[in-house]
């Protein structure tokens, strides 16, 4: 890989990386590495290069290297970003300062502790809840949902749990109990899903002291989100829903019913039947 790159045009970029080792318990310090950067190289590529060539003790977390798994969130030049999703030269051609995501404990070097964050995610019960438990556990059919109803929440379902939004949030900076933009966005993702009936069960995490009223719409979470989830929008929609229901201006959602199973399905006579399969099973 190295030789390959040396034939390309490269620029030297200084990587200034926070190092912390829990075993020695010493204060975190910044360490510098010179990296030959070619066009198109991502921050994650740079870190890999350092680990292979300069310092095998450097630790961070990553997996998919394509902005899908959400494990490589870092604080790069003062902004929370995914290391794999950002090209070095688009950020700077001189110096990159890389720190672990703020507002999370540091486990080691660039590895943040996401444990509490996942707990918050769980606290909003991020799954479809039906009042009819019997039907939910042993479904007799499917729930109807129109494309418009899907558009209502699909953007919030894109969350990859990277935690960037929590590092950008001013409330999370001091308030450890706040449910946080990610989990609140998930609460709205399910509350606004036409098939869901569980908003009452989410009320504790969403509308108590730790919930939506802790959000003051500083908007930073939506700016940093790498997946276009727009968590601050979801939170304001949660508040809107609460406000309208408190003032009795909005009724509870109408129920979505199970559509009959395939057995009872009567084909539309206007649609011709599909041709018989030509390949034998």
């Amino acid at each position: 890989m190295n030789e390959n790159n040396s034939t390309k045009n490269t620029t030297t970029v200084i990587f200034e990386i926070l190092r912390y080792n829990p075993e020695t318990g010493e204060k975190p310090k910044m360490q510098e590495y010179n990296v030959q950067v070619y066009k198109g190289m991502t921050v994650l590529d740079g870190l890999n290069w350092i680990k292979e060539n300069l310092d095998p003790s450097l630790v961070w977390r990553s997996s998919c290297r394509m902005g899908v798994c959400g494990s490589c969130g870092m604080f790069i030049n003062g902004y929370p970003r995914l290391a794999c999703n950002n090209q070095i030269l688009k950020i700077s051609n001189k110096k990159l300062q890389i720190k672990p995501l703020p507002n999370f404990d540091i486990i080691r070097d660039l590895v943040p502790d996401l444990e509490g964050f996942f707990q918050k995610h769980k606290s909003v019960k991020p799954y479809l809840i039906r009042k009819d438990i019997q039907e939910q556990n042993l479904p007799t059919g499917e729930y109807f949902q129109s494309p418009d109803e899907l558009t209502n929440y699909i953007q919030f379902a894109y969350c990859i749990k990277c935690g960037l939004c929590l590092s950008a949030c001013p409330t999370v900076a001091t308030d450890e109990r706040f449910t946080g933009p990610q989990a609140l966005a998930q609460a709205w993702r399910y509350n606004s899903d036409s098939r869901d009936e569980g908003s009452d069960e989410r009320i504790k995490a969403v509308h108590d002291e730790i919930g939506a009223s802790r959000c003051h719409f500083a908007g930073a979470c939506s700016d940093v989100c790498p997946k276009g989830v727009d968590p601050s929008f979801a939170i304001q929609l949660l508040k809107q829903d609460f406000f309208l229901k408190t003032l009795k201006l909005r009724k509870d959602e109408k129920e979505t019913h199970v559509i009959p199973t395939a057995k009872k399905y009567v084909p539309n006579p206007k649609i011709p039947e599909a041709p018989k399969p030509t390949v034998k099973k």
């Binding site: 009320i203 504790k204 108590d208 508040k239 406000f243 408190t246």
Partner: peptide, 12 residues
Amino acid sequence: MRESKLWVYHLI
């Protein structure tokens, strides 16, 4: 629940 109510009054 209660907190969000108080917050709604705050806005009003």
